[in-house]
Design a protein around this nucleic acid. Structure first.
Lengths: 151, 151
DNA sequence: GCAAATTTAGTGTACCTACATTTAATGTTG
DNA sequence: CAACATTAAATGTAGGTACACTAAATTTGC
């Protein structure tokens, strides 16, 4: 759907301004769909993303610093997201023996089971599926353009 | 900068998945820059966006419903954003005489002055300027691709 | 070897989003 | 016109982001 119609704005100052609003609006649009998709599993998007990073490390632990490095949102508060996951018994936290400042965070069996269940549900992530509306060439083009914005 | 490097992930499941992450990551990247740019003026991004909508309506009032319709984030809580702007005397709220359920929201002179000041500062919005790294043709291409994602 | 700097997490506060619920005014309809 | 439904905004609560600050462990440098 055209951005003009979605935010009821018939014209924009410039194509650049429209592109700016379009990136921000589209990310929000995708984010809302992702949030709704994870809700049945009792997870938020940031919680899901942290769990995925931990699965990627498994069976090695991750530290808070490693999570931040790999998260989409660098300023998100990984500590508090891990708090929520720990309350739900999806991760464990233990002081790192080699460096007692750091904390070893590990995904639990329950966490792995939950991710497996989400993976198996084809409808679990309609947000990611939206990208299939683009051809492979268009997806590459989009990646190139976005990388260029952040040059 | 390449997404791979920004989130320290050497490969992705698919080009579609990478494109998905790229849209979300780039929007966050732009959002952080916008937020930092408005900070010196004591505004947050949603507050700025609401002020701009109100200036667009000026001297006519807007209702909360109209703000939501035009905001980038449809589920944001316009009422509470208007609360903050009202505290700062940048907008006024009066019960709409024609429909006493609705509230007429208007930008004040102080609000108009603040927006003028931000407009005049060329460095006020580095986020929007990032889009100038794309050529006009690329900006159009990006808009087309993003609109297609939300088809 | 010890004082100072740095690193690693965690905390406090303000603001925001997501979503359900509430309150009041207005429409609708038998 | 009274009962019910709908509309417009506000509120309550849980979780998240932005950013400054704190506390503890470790590293660095004299």
């Amino acid at each position: 759907m055209r951005l003009e119609d979605e935010i009821k704005q018939p014209t924009f100052q410039s194509e650049a301004h429209k592109a700016y609003l379009n990136v921000v609006y589209t990310a929000g649009w995708l984010g809302q769909r992702q949030m709704a998709a994870f809700k049945p599993y009792g997870l938020t998007s940031p919680q899901f993303n942290v769990l995925r990073i931990l699965r990627g490390q498994h069976p090695l632990p991750a530290t808070v610093a490693l999570l931040i490095e790999r998260m989409l949102d660098k300023t998100s508060n990984a500590s508090r997201i891990v708090d929520k996951l720990e309350e739900k018994k999806l991760v464990t936290r233990t002081v790192c023996p080699a460096n007692r400042r750091a904390v070893d965070i590990r995904i639990t069996e329950a966490g792995l089971r939950l991710l497996r269940q989400i993976d198996e549900d084809e409808h679990a992530n309609p947000a990611r599926g939206s990208l299939d509306r683009l051809t492979a060439a268009e997806q590459r083009q989009l990646n190139t353009l976005l990388d260029k914005i952040r040059a």
